[in-house]
Design a protein around this nucleic acid. Structure first.
Length: 756
DNA sequence: GTTCCACGCGTTTTT
DNA sequence: CGCGTGGAAC
């Protein structure tokens, strides 16, 4: 016990050893959040306050769940497998698998990822002759997910106009389609298990009695449905230990509701609020920057990070003349950091949006510096992998219409759109799956479809005794996928990925502790993440919880949907880390570059229109800053190519919000030409590029304008002329309108007033 | 059924 | 500017 608790600071110790009452832990960046969470569980177990069966720990990412499990096994001797540790979606999946019957789902229901959901919706719209201009699939998906996250079924949604009424109808049809096909989307996992527990008293009471301690990571990211799910699960008087940081809430745009933190304090009568403010990650100047920045946000729960690490180096600020120039600076700086002996993997280049990475990648590539870009397509999201997985889905259940449609003509086998249209009519007519409707088909379409049936049945027969990796190998060959990509010019990577899928299957068995030679179609008592047969004394099943029988194949399919896998990138090599700020959350690096610190980009222009959008952007910047351990670089650029146009941006307000004393300007700090305040009261400064053009003048319509001159425009307000171009009637000026941004105005049209 | 070009669109995205 | 989608032509 002594060993378990040693080296915890007082705040952490207090959190770990809190009495059995619900608590909220405000854990600042780098304050040892995961450590507190895992030590808390270990402490509860070691003090005998709970058995492994009584623990429910929820995270948002698989990675976090894995890390928690791994750390916990290092702390306790008991098997972590008895505990329910996982993501919201993973745990809900587990509930639904165990109680599929009560949840009105087929035993081997399949999970749609966002891509699958979208194609499912597209198919629905086509089948119902809906104009997808008027009802874009993406918008409908958003609408449906949003409704589900508010706990609303189609029958419960209130439509405010005709258009929405139609959306609701389509939502209803989508529900029917999913139910018919035995598939659930991500939001459905949550909602369905919520409904399962709220309707089924016995089940609810069973789980409420079982889980006496519920621990939640990244609580600020919970959405409304997840919060209600927690309330339901904890309804029997469980102790909820919620860890989160309102300052790091950056997923409001996806439905995360920081308000859940205050709601939690109210609903659970939280007496214990502990702040973890001791930071073990960053040097003082970096923390000071973070603290000063976030202080500009209102409605915070309040928190100030401190460190014992000393001030460290100043925060370096660089103003580039162009995005290219910015990228070159990054390259040079990164080079010298590596020359100093730093690992490339300890250097991160962060940006607000993915579009910014291209210039940087190009510069790094030219300089021959290894780098790795995070984000983009992940392994199980790749088209060739999706195709292979669809064939595997058909091995489990050929009546899966979406899997069927995905590969019935891929590789092409002469089954075109009109054949499928006929088939769909036939299926509707006989109320059966597409696969089952094939025997009703005649003519040429019937022949080629029958050939497909023979392919599927043949593969199913042959793979009957095969292990999962053998089955995967067999399917990617027999389906013709390999041959197809061999014919393609750029198919080599895809073939390589398909080969990688065989390895992924092998690795999966290993991870789950499933014997490598167990037939893929053998219904074993394994459960994803947690076999229910871990002890020597035999199968360990709590009363009221059925043994989940699942084939290795279905377990693998589930795994692929719930965990998209790492992004494909060259492994093994020490490489610079490139990612969006969102993707960097939870990570840390010796040196961090935050790029593109310009108004319109970071904060992003779209965010300023959303309620509290600016505050979310600021939290995003806060997250970015607090990733850095020793060295932090901030950069912005005067010009930037965006969508094929050159944009003239002004420096981000976030730069202004940092204390001057901790900054070191690599380029001269901008000269402030004029400052004042807008009608809204926000004070700001007008600035011109550090490399100020000469006091050039241009005349038009009898007036002469000078660079640097302060002017007033009826629509944009006060501004400063930054550059002038053209002659006579063609004179145009770049004018910095402060918060309104940089505008290019034609001076023969725009009416400017001269300010004294 | 396949291929090619024109057009449009371009924040972030744990599951 | 560069990509992915979708329509029209081979």
């Amino acid at each position: 016990m002594q060993k378990l608790l040693e080296n915890l600071n007082l705040e952490q110790l207090a959190a770990v050893t809190l009495p059995a009452q619900s608590a909220l832990i405000l854990a600042g960046a780098g304050s040892g959040k995961t450590r507190v969470l895992t030590t808390r569980i270990a402490w509860l177990l070691k003090t005998g306050q709970i058995s492994t069966q009584g623990v429910l720990a929820v995270t948002f990412t698989n990675k976090a769940a894995r890390e928690m499990t791994a750390r916990l096994s290092g702390m306790i001797s008991a098997n972590t497998r008895g505990m329910w540790i996982g993501t919201f979606h993973g745990l809900c999946n587990r509930l639904l698998r165990a109680h599929y019957h009560d949840a009105a789902l087929p035993q081997s229901f399949q999970i749609l990822d966002s891509q699958d959901q979208l194609s499912s919706i597209r198919r629905l719209l086509r089948a119902n002759n809906v104009d997808d201009e008027q009802y874009p699939p993406r918008a409908l998906a958003y609408y449906i997910n949003n409704a589900k996250e508010r706990g609303l079924r189609a029958v419960n949604v209130e439509a405010f106009d005709e258009h929405e009424q139609r959306m609701v109808e389509l939502y209803g049809l989508y529900e029917e389609q999913c139910q018919r096909e035995g598939v659930v989307d991500f939001a459905e996992l949550l909602l369905r298990s919520y409904e399962l527990l709220s309707r089924n008293v016995l089940l609810r009471e069973h789980y409420q009695a079982r889980f006496r301690h519920i621990l939640v990571d990244e609580f600020q990211d919970t959405n409304d449905l997840q919060y209600q799910w927690l309330r339901l699960m904890a309804g029997g008087g469980a102790v909820v230990f919620a860890v989160g940081d309102d300052d790091q809430s950056i997923y409001a745009f996806r439905g995360a509701n920081v308000g859940n933190m205050t709601a939690f304090q109210r609903d659970f009568q939280v007496q214990n609020l502990i702040r973890l403010e001791q930071n073990y990650r960053s040097h003082g100047n970096i923390l000071e920057a973070a603290n000063a920045l976030i202080a500009n946000n209102s409605r915070r729960l309040g928190k100030n990070l401190r460190t014992e690490a000393g001030h460290g180096e100043p925060v370096r600020v660089f103003e580039a003349t162009s995005d290219l120039n910015e990228a070159q600076y990054l390259v040079e700086e990164a080079k010298s950091l590596v020359a100093e002996g730093r690992l490339r993997s300890e250097i991160a280049i962060l940006y607000r949006s993915n579009a910014q990475s291209r210039v940087i990648e190009h510069a790094l590539f030219s300089a021959g510096i290894p780098y790795r870009v995070y984000g983009g397509l992940r392994f199980f999201e790749r088209a060739e992998i999706k195709h292979a997985m669809a064939y595997l889905q058909l091995m489990d259940n050929p009546h899966n219409d979406s899997a069927f449609l995905r590969v019935v003509n891929f590789p092409t086998r002469g089954i075109g759109a009109r054949s499928l249209e006929q088939l769909q009519n036939m299926a509707r007519q006989h109320d059966v799956s597409l696969y089952a409707a094939i025997p009703y088909m005649s003519g040429k379409a019937g022949t080629s479809l029958a050939a497909f049936v023979r392919l599927v049945e043949g593969a199913r027969f042959e793979t009957q005794q095969m292990s999962l990796p053998e089955m995967v190998k067999m399917v990617i060959e027999r389906s013709g996928l390999i041959a197809h990509y061999q014919k393609e010019k750029e198919g080599a990577d895809r073939i390589e990925n398909l080969g990688e899928l065989v390895n992924a299957a092998l690795a999966f068995l290993h991870m789950e502790g499933i014997p490598q030679d167990m037939p893929a179609l053998y219904a074993s008592q394994v459960f994803q993440g947690t076999p229910i047969l871990p002890t020597e004394s035999g199968v360990e099943v709590l009363e009221g919880e059925p043994v989940v029988e699942m084939t290795p194949l279905v377990a693998f399919l589930t795994h692929a949907s719930l965990e998209a896998g790492e992004s494909q990138a060259q492994e093994g090599q020490d490489a610079l880390q490139l990612m969006t700020v969102h993707a960097a959350k939870g990570l840390e690096f010796d040196a961090v570059f935050i790029t593109g610190l310009e108004e319109g980009l970071f904060p992003h222009e779209n965010s300023t229109q959303e309620v509290d959008g600016l505050e979310e952007e600021r939290r995003l910047m806060y997250v970015a800053i607090t990733r850095a351990k020793q060295r932090l670089y901030l950069s912005c650029s005067q010009t930037r190519m965006l969508h094929g146009r050159t944009k003239y941006n002004i420096q981000s307000r976030f730069l202004d919000e940092l204390p001057e004393g901790i900054l070191k300007w690599i380029t001269p700090k901008k000269q402030v030409y004029w400052s004042g305040s807008t009608s809204s009261g926000a004070s700001h400064a007008f600035v011109v590029p550090a490399v100020a053009p000469l006091a050039a003048t241009r005349s038009t319509g009898g007036a002469t304008w000078r660079i640097g001159e302060a002017i007033f425009h009826k629509k944009f307000g006060d501004g400063v002329i930054v550059s002038l171009e053209g002659e006579g009637a063609q004179v145009r000026a770049h004018i910095n309108f402060g918060r309104e941004g940089m505008k290019l105005l034609d001076l023969s049209i725009a009416k400017l007033e001269r300010l004294a």
